[in-house]
Amino acid sequence: MSRWRMWFWNRVAPWVLPVAVLVIWQALGSAGVISRRILPTPLGVVDAALMLARQGVLWTYIATSAARAFSGFFIGATVGFTLGTLNGISKKASRLLDTPIQMIRTIPHLALVPLVIVWFGIGEQAKVFLVALGTAIPMYMNTYFGIQSLDPGLLEMARVYRFSRLKMFGRVILPGALPSVLSGVRYSLGVMWVTLIVAETISANSGIGYMVMNAQEFMQMNIVVLGVVLYALLGKLSDVIARVLETRLLRWHPIGMQAV
């Protein structure tokens, strides 16, 4: 294959369909085939973004939503990781804690929205709590699983060589569980956005969700679609962060090595 063709298939081809869809969508909108009351045109969405950016509210909304998402994630991931590590290392702890955690896991955490609103009102805590709850579970599962599926041969080797507890954890258990922990991070980041979107849509007085709900009341469909686009971009951003973490931290991994 010639270089030009290689370049086309590697770099251009994945964008052909999305761009085509945008162009057709814009054309149909401009021609009046699709009513703007139902679906705004792509340029209309860009207009909305520029307008809100000029007013400065766009950045405030994004910052508010991101702050909620990441503080919830930070709390949830820390709790999930700590419990997963504890149960992975200590048999007694897992006997005590694993069953109740597994029971909580089966509850869809979004089902708790009405309860959470009663507990925390519609303030920040409610959203942070829901995100933390939602992200803690996959972090716990993956950390626990990662430690449980460590190679027993390596643990025995570390025993023969008399690794201290600290060395055992830092050099054997933690790095061994890391691939699984990182897939937990990636999964949790996904849960984080879904939870936040639901929580903000139900009740908020700032943030992207608030912006969307507000726009819906006034039938500003271009702002509604802008909200959806923003969530997609933020979701993509957190996926990129997870990917970077994986290639950075798993350089030793046969799969990671090919990526470098």
Partner: peptide, 16 residues
């Protein structure tokens, strides 16, 4: 304390 063991598989830590 005086013994070191070599196993059938090398049991190296893959991340080091």
């Amino acid at each position: 304390p005086t013994a070191r063991v070599m196993f059938q598989d090398a049991r190296l830590l893959p991340w080091l």
